[in-house]
Design a protein around this nucleic acid. Structure first.
Length: 746
DNA sequence: TGCGGGTCCAGCGGG
DNA sequence: TGGACCCGCA
């Protein structure tokens, strides 16, 4: 026996330590198709990573022959770092990432086998919308009658179902579909001229490649002798097809998922993939993970009672060896303001008694609009919170603009990028001139680069022509520069030479905020600087395109209550969870009432929310809720029915927590007022009615996001107090004072 | 070309 | 209610 083998066995034994029998079974299962039905909080990620590590440690798999696919970048990162720890390095060469990253990588390697140019760019949702708009115009589809979103959705769905323009056109039924069928081929043609793929293409083209090229199929099948997939319940048909093709005859495939947590059918996820795994592989080994390590018995019982009403599911008996815990509380409140106050009051009570740090609680809701009332109350009460979602980093105008410049440098055919920045900052090239250029290119009258150099080709004269030429010179300059200097310097030069820095930094606080975002982008480029392979422009752009967003959940240590949608909260957990707005029309949402399947998905959404809670779970609904500005009556969700008779479930607050609506509207409820008074005393947070500045130069402060710093300037503006802070690590920044993110240090 | 007011719309959002 | 978008006017 070789020393290596012995070491491997030692590691293997360590990998099984602390696993329960079901987990161990899944980790050590033989090379047969394996379906791990992992209930909420049952250690799913642990099993997946340990199985990969186990396969490697026991020499059943070489790292470079393993493909492990996750749904999010975050999950991929986590898995990579956990594997690094488990194996002490040794993950080199392993393909570990999202489906889309995997697709991009394969297409860079062998995409030409499916007619994909090697230097393709990846279009995000914004770019896709721009192209879609143009395609709709070409097809003569009226944007007023058919929304971009509906057409775009149809086409995306078609792609996820592996239907090309012809096939889709042949089977199109109904108004929207037939319009989409006219747009689809034009949309695809435009992507092609731009040498661009959208996210759906990253999957679709891989399928086409593997199906049409024996060489490609052979190559990747041989390469990936072990295939493992996380969140299998969320895979769409294209992803399913890729897996089937890759797994082929060797059938060493492990999928992990929970049908009860499938909440993305509207994005193409197909529950059949997991429900029918055993039909696809009749000899599959199915290992249910039923022991929950997260929630109390009371919480599990309530969640189980809710999800059991669904018909489309594989029953699991989720159980816990943990304590019964506090009862699950269901409360009714007058309206969303009182609901928010109740959340704040309860969180405040727990915090005051030392049972809860702010960062340990989350407030969940169905729609983003619901966050407003919560924010207002938390702000008023001085309770720190962080809002997940909203406008994301890469969707910010300034970031998209600068990225468009970079994309144009990397790919001069990218007309979406061109149209985005040709007149930003202004160069005298208006909509009219852009249209002329577009028409010329449309008619095949030349390449974009040529038109930039000789604008007269497009019939342009005067200021517009000069603007295009200046733009051309700028790009040429940057192009030369980029061949000799690292990314960061290129970015700096771009910001200077283009005039973009001046445009953004207009002296307003908003301008500084935008500039701060660009500084962050610069930071990302700098991070890559250490790695020569990643520091090229194309690699940088690809990474950003696939990264989607800077991870908002990474700073989980923040001392703030989390406000988050039910969809985004999947995969997270908190000691204390409030699920708000559990009402008919909201959860289930009105738009899901038309089919039993979507209704069941809504129920799963509530289930996901409930199972995020470790110790305390609160559900609330209102008597009335403001929707689009006007009040409407609300009734408790049908999903709550099985809870009414359930042991370990009780009302939230005193029996009188809900009282009849007041006779005159707009009059605050006495009870609400009393509660606020109590809360104020408990949290000692005085209402934020301040007439003068709260900060002075020299004050030491801590910012939720940027850390510690010193106030340099404080001034009162019509919009409130504004401060300039020198941060220890984040440099000088300017803010409007917000108690939610800034606090004074002693 | 840039801005202001009218109008329309409103679910969840990974990669 | 509030944001996005369009049209018309300076």
């Amino acid at each position: 026996m070789t020393p290596g083998k012995i070491a491997g066995e030692v590691v293997a034994a360590e990998l099984l330590a602390g696993l329960n029998p079901a987990q161990a079974e899944a980790v050590t299962a033989p090379d047969v198709p394996l379906l791990v039905l992992a209930g909420a909080g049952s250690g799913k990620t642990r099993v997946l990573t340990h199985r990969v590590a186990y396969l490697v440690a026991t020499h059943r798999a070489q790292p470079q022959r393993v493909l492990a696919v996750t749904f999010t970048n975050k999950a991929a990162r986590e898995m990579r770092s956990r594997l690094g720890v488990l194996l002490g390095g040794g993950v080199e060469g392993m393909w570990l990432g999202t489906f889309h990253a995997m697709g991009a990588r394969m297409l860079r390697q062998r995409g030409e086998l499916a007619g994909v140019p090697r230097d393709f760019v990846i279009y995000d949702e914004g770019d896709r919308a721009a192209v879609m708009k143009e395609a709709m115009a070409q097809a003569g589809v009226d944007e007023k009658r058919f929304s971009l979103a509906s057409i775009s959705g149809e086409i995306s769905r078609a792609k996820n179902d592996l239907r090309g323009p012809e096939e889709f056109g042949a089977s199109a039924r109904g108004f929207v579909e037939s319009q989409a069928a006219r747009v689809y081929p034009r949309y695809q043609a435009l992507l092609e001229t731009n040498r661009a793929l959208d996210f759906d293409d990253l999957l679709l083209k891989v399928v086409r490649m593997l199906e049409s090229s024996a060489e490609a199929l052979e190559r990747y099948r041989d390469r990936f002798r072990h295939v493992l997939v996380d969140e299998y319940q969320d895979t769409n048909r294209a992803q399913y097809r890729i897996l089937r093709l890759l797994v082929g005859e060797h059938r060493r495939v492990t999928v992990v998922g929970d049908p009860d947590q499938s909440v993305y059918s509207w994005r193409g996820a197909d529950l059949r993939n997991i429900l029918e795994f055993q039909r696809d592989y009749p000899d599959a080994l199915v290992v249910p993970l039923e022991q929950n390590y997260r929630s109390t018995a009371a919480i599990l019982r309530a969640a189980g009672a809710v999800i059991r009403e669904n018909t489309q599911r594989l029953d699991k008996g989720l159980w816990t060896a943990g304590p019964e815990g506090d009862p699950v509380r269901v409360g009714q409140f007058y309206d969303e303001r009182e609901e928010a106050s109740a959340v704040a009051a309860e969180a405040g009570r727990l915090n005051a008694s030392g049972e809860l740090a702010w960062g340990e609680a989350a407030v969940l809701y169905r729609t983003n609009a619901q966050s407003r009332a919560l924010e207002e109350v938390l702000l008023r009460e001085g309770i720190p919170y962080r809002l997940i979602g909203g406008l994301r980093f890469y969707q910010r105008k300034e970031v998209k603009d600068v990225l468009a410049y970079l994309r144009l440098l990397a790919n001069p055919s990218d007309r979406v990028a061109f149209e985005r920045v040709i007149n930003v900052p202004r160069r005298g090239v208006g909509a009219q001139s852009i249209a002329q250029v577009r028409d010329l290119l449309q008619g095949g009258g030349g390449r974009l680069e040529a038109v930039l150099e000789i604008p007269e080709l497009a019939g342009l004269r005067g200021a517009a022509a000069q603007g295009l030429r200046r733009f051309h010179d700028l790009l040429a300059d940057l192009h030369d520069y980029s061949s000799q200097w690292p990314l960061v310097q290129l970015l700096d030069r771009l910001l200077e030479r283009s005039g973009y820095r001046q445009l953004v930094r207009d002296g307003t606080p908003e301008g500084e905020e935008r500039w701060a975002n660009l500084t962050e982008l610069r930071g990302l480029a700098a991070e890559l600087g250490d790695d020569p392979a990643a520091a090229t422009l194309p690699a940088f752009l690809e990474q950003l395109a696939l990264a989607g967003d800077v991870d908002q959940m990474d700073d989980s240590a923040s001392g703030a209550i989390t406000l988050i949608t039910l969809h985004q909260v999947k995969g997270l957990e908190f000691p204390v969870v409030f699920v708000t707005g559990v009402e008919e029309g909201l959860l289930p949402h009105v738009r899901s009432l038309d089919s039993e399947a979507s209704l069941e998905e809504e129920r799963r959404l509530l289930y996901v929310g409930m199972t995020r809670a470790r110790e305390r779970l609160y559900l609330s609904h209102c008597f009335q809720r403001h929707l689009y500005g006007s009040p409407r009556g609300a009734t408790p969700s049908r999903f709550l029915r099985p809870l009414s008779a359930l042991e370990g479930t009780s009302g939230w607050g005193s029996p009188g927590s809900f009282v009849a609506p007041p006779a005159t509207r707009g009059q605050p409820l006495v009870l609400t007022r009393a509660r606020e008074a109590i809360l104020r005393e408990v949290t000692k947070a005085a209402p934020a009615v301040v007439s003068g500045p709260r900060y002075a130069a020299g004050d030491r402060v801590e910012h939720q996001r940027f850390g510690r710093g010193v106030i340099r300037v404080s001034e009162m503006t019509p919009g409130g107090e504004e401060v300039v802070i020198d941060f220890e690590t984040a440099g000088r920044r300017r803010f409007a004072v917000s108690d939610a993110v800034l606090r004074k240090l002693a």
